[in-house]
Design a protein around this nucleic acid. Structure first.
Length: 986
RNA sequence: GGGCGUGUGGCGGAAUUGGUCUACGCGCACGACUCAAAAUCGUGUGAGGAAACUCAUGUGGGUUCGAGUCCCACCACGCCCACCA
């Protein structure tokens, strides 16, 4: 835990402390007399205003497709313009992309860097309901405020390309894309139960849930069957998966998407039902473990599975089934799925399922441990090899058949080649003394072994009998409670040194608890072989115990009896003795099943029963059924309504707008009604990056030539929270648009970066609730946009979340003032010393590389170092100073424009090019060598660069500091790395 | 339970990818300037020790001439998924 800082004096910019600029008049009075600047104090207020106006007037951000520069498309995830305006955390990503875009521009790229608004969605609508104001008007107001805030920070967007999802000229194309999906059969109506938020009164996609709660309002969601539009994103699951491999995205985001898609390969197995003569429907199950089919104990359906209803006439206990279904409906998803929850279920009496591999009949259950929407909504249960099935089988007294034997090869006593192989049935006896908590063990005298009492199972003996006998023979203990056989056999291969043979043992473990410590004397032979010892719970571990089966015994001792790994087949007729992983295909074929793939990814529930979204452009005709709105009639605008409240009946408020709803069928001109569901907020954001390329096109969503020029997005920056929604939806739509020839690339975003959130100074998420919100307007007013930009760049690694500290921000302001004051030292004809030249070149290189890799924090740091060095110099050449100003300009653009123009820069600095560093001037003629003795630093010496080992050794010969450590010692080895280190090993 | 990630001064964080641990910044202390304060500038600032030195990157091992960095185990925290058959 980090210490909670006390509330800081400077939080929320309540200025009790004087900021440096407020005292600048004093500096002026002292006559800080550089003459070039029109003003000799750094007044951020006037400078920022001035340059924002000049940029706008000069249209420096206007982007066209003309010219032969290489293109670079830099994109921010566009914001949802909330009523609260920006807080200081929002611009972190925007500043980073702005720096990147400016840098790319200075490096000769034709940069597209646009901004827009994601303005449909629930918050606006809820605001509208509460304040009785049209969401359209409210959003337009918010957009205005957001825009002015972004401009105030000096972000160089091409505002002529601004887009907004609520603009009919924009959502015309959102609707158009839906129609194409509809025409290709990728949008369909479904009546399946979906997630229903009783508070927001709308259906939600899986992605919109936070556990079992509505992500927006925190209300527990219900499953509710209703008519809805669904997009077949699953059809693109494999493409979405494969496409990830070639993207320059953070690995963890790709992994998140892979997990979300959740591809899983397995088999579909069909179970015929009895009574046979009725020709009942079959139960299809999905399983990743068809190899365990001979261990089948029962079959389970999800309670919601519609097959249950179809079987109703043949089920004798329907009332129980109905009760169970009701019971489940009353429970939340969390209650149903809570870990360690008892497995409940009801058998479907009257029918049985037939195992296709051995024709045995097994019972059929419904249970809520089977999910309706994964796989086929039905499962084959093999209790011996699945934890859930095991728990269910134990509770309901169902048979448990082992079909896979785990295989272990003893690493400490591996089988020896050339020795005889002997197969044995063994037992390991695990005895706990419950009074002391200790376990009984044997310490072998001739070998370095520690084992449990153990031995062979003899002909005609049960496992328990053998265990008791061995325990008595080897230790003399005789009074134990009834034993428990810990699961099935384990195969182990090892070399039995005491018998000089390789053993292939099939071993069961038996667990006993000691009643008392009474024991008989054991025979001499046993006594000479091993000594009886007591082991602590910690001792019974693979490090100490010799048994190769130890890991499995421990699992089983802790209650995990079902073995879910691979192994050797038993009880499986012709498949016996084979490796389980090798028979998967064979047994599937034998069972008449087929190999198949399933996904966790659900199809995208695409309709919302709310007002503030794009109307879904279809018409329900009494005769023709569902008909697409003709493309020429797009955009299909929202009608004006008086009330925005959702009805709660599963109809959107649009349903009450008779005038709007009642229409004619475009086909037969007969009576028809409009679809009243609207699209989710994710619709508009799934393709906006395409519209920026060609925002005013009225003929197509993007011109093909223009799309080919700009696509794909080269750098996309936004929060990780979009990893599984926006970024999957957008990729899905993009791939669809590729398939219908609208776009030319298979992936929309080539590179992706996630910015970490900026937290309040109390380490909590910035929010009104905590009162820790810092407003950028205040910061910009007090210290300037440039200081804000430098600070947010400097505060820490870009991807990491970090707490805001107004206190620390003063360092960034001081840095800019320092650079400002350096103007005094600049002289046209000054000749910089070697150090300065080298550091300048190094700094140019470092800052460029850091911008490319989004490590702005170290870029700023290296510029601070450079400024500190310059401050200590007698003078600075104009060239050096201006090169420095150029590399600072992406971070502090207004500031640098001002300085640049004061020094007579003709073009604006934003249009200048990035300084080139001189490869030959990155190294100084001297270098520091670290001298180590046995890896410890004893001295550093300065020698000519690239000096060889003998020169350095000579140098060291007269160095007392080092000689002190070398005198009287044998030098065994010398490690030398040029220009870095010399290490004497003595 | 599964996946991903993090752990370095009083604080935010650097560390050329195995080569001087703590750059840069904040804070703090002292000094200069000032009647005084602020601002600014300068010096110092991981711990122990008078010093020589020693010890320090969550803990414990290992590899190496040399480990914050690589390997193994553990601890703590964060995020995502979670009865996924």
């Amino acid at each position: 835990m980090k210490n909670q800082k006390e509330t800081n004096r400077y939080d929320h910019i309540k200025i009790e402390k004087k900021w440096p600029h407020e005292k600048l008049s004093a500096v002026q009075n002292k006559g800080a007399g550089f003459s070039r600047g029109k003003q000799n104090i750094y007044n951020h207020l006037s400078i920022e205003k001035k340059w924002q106006a000049l940029w706008s007037k000069g249209k420096v951000n206007k982007t066209t497709e003309a010219g032969n520069k290489p293109k670079c498309y830099v994109l921010d995830m566009f914001p949802y313009p909330s009523g609260d305006g920006l807080h200081v955390g929002h611009p972190r990503g925007y500043i980073a992309t702005d720096v990147y875009a400016r840098y790319k521009k200075m490096n000769g790229f034709n940069v597209l860097h646009p901004m827009g608004w994601d303005a449909f969605g629930l918050p606006a609508e809820n605001y509208a309901i509460k304040n009785k104001i049209s969401p359209d008007i409210a959003m337009k107001k918010n957009i205005k405020r957001f825009k002015s805030q972004l401009q105030m920070i000096g972000l160089n967007y091409d505002w002529e390309r601004e887009v907004s999802t609520i603009d009919p000229k924009y959502f015309k194309w959102t609707q158009w894309i839906f129609l194409q999906l509809f025409k290709k059969g990728l949008a369909y109506e479904s009546y399946a139960p979906i997630n229903w938020c009783p508070s927001c009164k709308t259906g939600l996609a899986n992605e919109d849930l936070d556990g079992d709660k509505c992500e927006r309002c925190g209300t527990t969601i219900e499953k509710k069957p209703m008519r809805q539009w669904v997009l077949r994103i699953r059809d693109y699951a494999d493409k979405l998966l494969e496409g990830l491999d070639n993207l320059s995205w953070p690995e963890h985001v790709k992994e998140l998407q892979r997990n979300w898609i959740g591809r899983s390969e397995g088999a579909e197995i069909e179970f015929k039902l009895t009574p046979k003569n009725l020709n009942l429907k079959t139960i299809k199950v999905f399983t990743t473990r068809p190899d365990t089919l001979f261990g089948l104990s029962y079959v389970v359906l999800a309670p919601e599975n519609s097959l249950v209803d179809e079987l109703k006439p043949h089920i004798n206990n329907w009332d129980k089934i109905e009760n169970y279904r009701k019971e489940i409906k009353g429970k939340s998803e969390i209650d149903r799925t809570a870990e360690g929850k008892e497995k409940t279920g009801v058998e479907l009496k009257g029918i049985k399922a037939i195992n296709p591999v051995d024709s045995k009949e097994v019972p059929v259950f419904i249970s809520d441990y089977v999910l309706a929407n994964y796989g086929t909504g039905a499962v084959m249960a093999v209790p011996a090899h699945d934890d859930r099935d095991y728990a269910f089988a134990k509770k309901n007294n169902l048979p448990i058949t082992e079909v896979i034997v785990p295989v272990r090869i003893d690493k400490r006593n591996p089988p020896v080649a050339g020795k005889k192989d002997v197969e044995r049935r063994n037992v390991h006896v695990i005895v706990k003394n419950t009074k002391t908590g200790m376990y009984l063990g044997l310490k072998w005298k001739k070998f370095n072994w520690t084992t449990f009492p153990m031995g062979g199972v003899e002909e005609g003996e049960t496992i328990l009998e053998a265990a008791k006998r061995e325990l008595f023979e080897e230790t003399g203990y005789k009074n134990v409670k009834a034993g428990v056989v810990l699961g099935g056999q384990v195969r182990a291969e090892y070399f039995a040194a005491h018998k000089d043979q390789n053993r292939i043992s099939y071993t069961n473990a038996v667990y006993f608890e000691l009643i008392n410590e009474e024991k008989e004397k054991i025979n001499k032979e046993e006594d000479e072989t091993h000594e009886v010892i007591w082991l602590t719970e910690k001792d019974i571990h693979s490090d100490i115990m010799t048994h190769a089966e130890m890991d499995i015994w421990l699992e089983r001792l802790s209650g995990n009896i079902a073995y879910t790994g691979e192994g050797e087949m038993i009880n499986s007729e012709q498949f016996n003795k084979r490796k389980s992983e090798e028979i998967v295909k064979g047994i599937t074929e034998f069972a008449g099943g087929k190999m198949t793939t399933t996904y966790k990814l659900q199809n995208w529930v695409f309709s919302r029963q709310r007002y503030w979204g794009e109307p879904i452009p279809v018409i329900h005709c009494e005769k023709c059924g569902v008909v697409a709105v003709p493309e020429k009639d797009l955009p299909l605008k929202l009608p004006k309504v008086k009330f925005y409240e959702p009805s709660g009946t599963g109809e959107s408020p649009l349903a009450k707008m008779d005038k709007w709803v009642n229409t004619k069928c475009p086909n037969c001109k007969g009576k028809a009604k409009r679809e009243t569901n609207t699209m989710p907020q994710w619709a508009g954001s799934s393709w906006y990056y395409l519209r920026y390329m060609d925002p005013k096109n009225s003929k197509s969503l993007v011109d093909k030539k223009i799309e080919k020029y700009w696509a794909p997005v080269d750098m996309y920056v936004g929060g990780t929270e979009h990893a599984t929604r926006h970024l999957i939806y957008a990729r899905f739509w993009h791939k669809f648009l590729y398939d219908i020839g609208v776009v030319s690339t298979t992936e929309p975003f080539r590179q992706l970066r996630n910015q970490g959130m900026i937290l309040g100074s109390d380490n909590r998420k910035m929010s009104k609730r905590w009162g820790n919100v810092v407003n950028p307007d205040e910061v910009v007013k007090n210290v300037g946009a440039d200081t804000l930009r430098v600070y947010e760049s400097f505060m820490g690694p870009f991807e990491q979340e970090i707490a805001w500290s107004t206190d620390s921000m003063i360092g960034s302001r001081r840095f800019l003032e320092k650079v400002w004051k350096l103007q005094n030292k600049v002289a046209d004809k000054f000749i910089d010393d070697e150090d300065t030249i080298i550091l300048l070149n190094k700094t140019i290189k470092k800052v460029g590389e850091d911008i490319e890799s989004f490590n702005a924090n170290t870029a700023i740091s290296s510029m601070m170092i450079f400024a500190n060095v310059l401050e200590g110099k007698e003078g600075i050449s104009k060239n050096t100073y201006l090169a420095f100003i150029k590399i600072l300009s992406p971070f502090a653009p207004h500031f640098c424009e001002e300085v640049w123009s004061a020094f007579g820069g003709k073009k604006m600095i934003v249009l200048e090019s990035w300084p080139k560093y001189d490869e030959g001037k990155l190294k100084s003629s001297k270098s520091k060598i670290v001298v180590q003795v046995n890896g410890k630093v004893r001295a550093t010496i300065e020698v000519e660069s690239d000096a060889g080992q003998n020169i350095i050794e000579k140098n060291i010969a007269s160095n007392e500091e080092v000689q002190k450590w070398l005198i009287g010692k044998d030098i065994k080895k010398i490690i030398f790395i040029k220009n870095k280190i010399i290490n004497f090993v003595v």
